[in-house]
């Protein structure tokens, strides 16, 4: 499975490096979302402002929206010229395909989250304290998000309404991740990381559960797509 996962992740990242859809569209989109939140709730005037208080939640909502785009792109490349049939014919382990596609999206999202964190610090006037908790919660939340996204990405890829179906399926399922990640970040940014470790555990549980679910379910879902 791991060999197949590496092969698929390498292929997806190579396609992304060539097409630059993530860099040229997903990152600017997420930055615009962060900026629009700032315009709607700002300006940031010190630690007590609405924007400053809401920064963790706004950050994760922006990440969620970007995840939908990244997952859609991940499955759009399989929809062109029968590539998904090629993937089925390839003989690759479906669990490997799932892990590979999720890993490729995960890598792109983690890079995006670094950029977004800088934007939040700058635009929302928040000091990025509690670095370890921030990084750990980013890792766990991102694994959970891309696992759910990849499961529903393949479900929606066979539908003509795939653009609207994916967010409809995805957002309700990741609500617990949004909540836990926001709480963990809130605790970290407030300088009380001990308050956020419980939420980090929640994120880890969701990440493991969704990852396991994806490795089992992806094969049958790919067949039906």
């Amino acid at each position: 499975m791991w060999r197949d996962a590496l092969l698929v992740a390498g292929k997806d990242l190579r396609i992304e490096a060539r097409s630059k859809v993530g860099l040229g569209q997903v990152v600017p989109f997420a930055l615009v979302v962060v900026l629009l939140f700032g315009l709607a709730l700002g300006p940031a005037a010190g630690r007590g402002s609405v924007l400053s208080l809401a920064a963790p939640g706004l950050y994760w909502v922006a990440v969620l929206l970007a995840t939908v785009l990244a997952v859609q792109r991940s499955f759009a490349i399989e929809a062109l010229d029968g590539a998904s049939d090629g993937l089925k014919l390839s003989g690759l382990d479906p669990a490997g395909i799932f892990v590979g596609k999720a890993a490729a999206v995960c890598g792109q999202l983690l890079a995006l989250e670094v950029v977004l964190a800088g934007a939040v610090a700058l635009l929302y006037d928040r000091h990025l304290a509690g670095g370890l908790l921030l990084v750990a919660s980013c890792l766990a939340a991102t694994v959970g998000l891309v696992s759910v996204g990849t499961i529903y990405g393949v479900v929606s890829s066979g539908s003509r309404q795939r653009e609207t179906l994916l967010p409809l399926l995805f957002f309700p399922m990741v609500a617990p991740i949004l909540l836990a990640a926001t709480k963990a970040w809130d605790a970290a940014l407030a300088g009380t990381p001990g308050r956020g470790t419980g939420w980090l555990d929640v994120l880890a549980v969701f990440a493991v559960a969704y990852l396991a679910m994806g490795t089992v379910a992806f094969g049958p879902l790919l067949e039906d797509a």
Partner: peptide
Amino acid sequence: RREVGLLGHASFLYDDLSVERNVRFAVRAA
């Protein structure tokens, strides 16, 4: 699937990979 080679109406290829990369991916996968 791994034991047959199908040439379909669709090419099963990725537009954003080179010809060689596409073929190498398929060969490695198989």
